[in-house]
Amino acid sequence: MSTYLLRRIWQMIPTLAGVMLLVFFLFNVFGGDPAAILAGKVASKEKIDAIREQLGLNAPIWVQLWIFVKQVFTFDFGASWSTNEAVSAIILQKAPVSLTVMLQVWLLDAIVAVTLAVAVAYKRGSFTDRAVMGICTAAMSISLLLYVVVGQWLLAYKLEWFPVLGWSDDFWTNVSTYAPLPILLLLFVSIAPSLRLYRSFVVEETGQDYARTARAKGASEHRVMFVHVLRNAAVPIVTNLALALPGLFVGSFLIEMVFSIPGLGKEIVNAVQRSDFPVIKAITVYLAMFAMAVNLLVDVLYKRLDPRVELK
């Protein structure tokens, strides 16, 4: 096990190096001179000069790369080009806001989608199954944007069931007042594809030989489904849920924009609009690191769920 972990961490190094190279080339080489980008966005010439100095733009490219690598490992990307706040402070401040919304979405989605998936897979081939699948296809096809725009207008503006937008500093106010509508709308969008996917996992397993064996043993259809099939279908389902974790930190940037939720997603969109490169660079690199850690976690989890998997 520890050999395995060691090897996996060893294997992550090239990937991480690759992500850093990608980000470096994207922003420092293709991104061009901050002076040109920031013309009109940042007033003072001194500040631009300071940025050039900080990035080492006057030095050869490998020095610039070295500066970038140092930034990554010292968690110091300097200050945002537009707000002058420290980038690390921005991330630490915004990430929990996104999580307040997204963790709930993640949990509710898992509960609802898995329950429904098992239910329709149980009744596979029936009218209910086909109807639910049809609705899912249609629901999946409609853009998230329409749900958000129409949902906000109808449920908040017209019916006044929820506040139209906003966010407060108090966690419980957020959870009870501002978060429910965004969560509801995100669930509308996320459940359909999850449901379809999980159903296919469950249905795949119901056709396996061991399910037939369980029936031949005299297990009831319920038992076959919940003890035998679901336990096997859990392997891909849990994997899928874990892999969705890194995305949670970005939150749904669309929903954060529309509902003015000051999370990481909104921060990213603003940064992109203002060409605030340090913020984007930092978030991209750290999320990639996090995603790699989650991947490792998934593999270890996989071993716990599926005894056939050998960690070599």
């Binding site: 030989d209 061991y210 064996t213 369980a214 035998h228 336990r231 005894p307």
Partner: peptide, 14 residues
Amino acid sequence: SMIFQDPMTSLNPV
């Protein structure tokens, strides 16, 4: 009771 052709897939792997 019954036994099948392929014991590998007929036993529940988990």
